[in-house]
């Protein structure tokens, strides 16, 4: 019995490791063979994958279904835009400023959301998301309103490193994605992350055991905001301009859908979900402008086909297969 368990465990770990190596090999080795359109698309996928994973910390691990998460992304992107175009700030200041503003936004907004649960949480984050979008749209002297802010220097010009062209930017993004992904994976497997899962399962149980659940939710909200800010900073440099369109409700809903389509509470799933959604969006909007209609259809199919997300479905299938093959 013990033996069997051990063997099953190691094949599981080996498969995981093999999968990881394969994915890294593809992400590192393939892009030089692709056209710059595809490299750009992959870059976008990775940026949104980072963002979606940071939302997963809230949705999947803590049970905080935030509808304003794109706000952090936007706050950081706007910070980079404002600092670099109006104040001629250097790269490091933009980087640190973007993260600091994201953390600050998390610390302030967290005060409003951390004590609210379930549907009320959805409502209040929805409202906060609208406020942030409203700010970006209407606070024209600061944000440029509908026109946004353009003229953000390229990463090459800003850092002084030889990073011209889509491919080097892609590798920078890949590095940031891998770094953030590893940190988030560590975060969810830490004692803090485990406590978050406990709070998701039963808040009253955790507080009767002695956990200040409010504080844990609050800190988690800030951490998730910090990771979303990193994605926002990448996005600002990638695009060279920022506009309110990445702060509106559709953006937050799309983001939320990336998480649920891929499988909340898995980190891998939401990254996958982000890749799929970004791909579909780019691909389909080349042919039709009914992107939302198609997104809706995909959503309905997903609910029927994989209600707990694609990655969870895959994991269950893999586990079942293992059980069948390991049977004598």
């Amino acid at each position: 019995m013990e033996e069997g368990k051990k063997i099953k465990h190691t094949t599981g770990t080996r498969n995981k490791l093999a999968g990881l190596v394969l994915v890294i090999a593809i992400l590192v080795g393939f892009p030089p063979l692709l056209s710059s359109y595809w490299v750009g698309l992959l870059t976008e996928m990775l940026i949104f994958a980072t963002l979606a994973m940071s939302l997963d910390i809230l949705v999947g691990y803590t049970g905080m279904p935030s509808l304003s998460h794109a706000g952090f992304f936007g706050v950081a992107a706007y910070t980079v835009a404002i600092l670099s175009t109006r104040h001629q700030a250097g790269f490091w200041l933009c980087l640190l400023g973007g993260i600091a503003m994201g953390v600050f936004a998390g610390a302030v907004l967290g005060l409003f959301v951390s004590h609210v649960k379930s549907v009320y949480f959805l409502m209040i984050t929805l409202a906060l998301g609208m406020v942030l979008w409203g700010l970006s749209y209407r606070w024209i002297p600061m944000t440029g309103g509908d026109n946004g802010i353009s003229g953000i220097p390229s990463l090459e010009a800003h850092t002084g490193l030889p990073l011209a062209g889509p491919l080097p930017f892609y590798y920078v993004t890949l590095f940031v994605f891998a770094l953030c992904g590893s940190l988030m994976a560590l975060f969810v497997s830490s004692p803090f992350g485990h406590t978050l899962k406990g709070i998701r399962e039963s808040e009253s149980r955790m507080s009767s055991l002695g956990v200040n659940t409010w504080l844990h939710r609050y800190l988690c909200y800030i951490v998730a905001g910090a990771f979303a800010s990193v994605a926002g900073i990448l996005w600002a440099y990638y695009n060279g301009f920022v506009s309110p369109s990445y702060l509106d409700l559709t953006a937050s809903v799309e983001l939320f859908f990336m998480v649920t389509l891929g499988g909340a509470g898995t980190l891998v799933g939401p990254a996958l979900g982000a890749g799929i959604i970004v791909f579909l969006k780019n691909f389909i909007s080349a042919y039709t402008d009914r992107w939302l209609l198609i997104l809706g259809t995909v959503y309905i199919l997903a609910i029927f086909f994989a209600p707990r997300g694609l990655w969870n479905r895959f994991l269950r299938k893999a586990r079942n297969r293992e059980r069948i093959t390991s049977r004598p």
């Binding site: 560590l186 004692p191 803090f192 485990h194 055991l209 844990h216």
Partner: peptide, 23 residues
């Protein structure tokens, strides 16, 4: 086991550790 582990760490400062695995 996870249930018990969470209960054991609930009153310790360990519950705030974010960058080490629980293992």
């Amino acid at each position: 086991f996870e249930n018990l582990l969470l209960a054991c760490e609930a009153l310790s400062r360990t519950k705030f550790v974010m960058l080490w695995p629980v293992s």
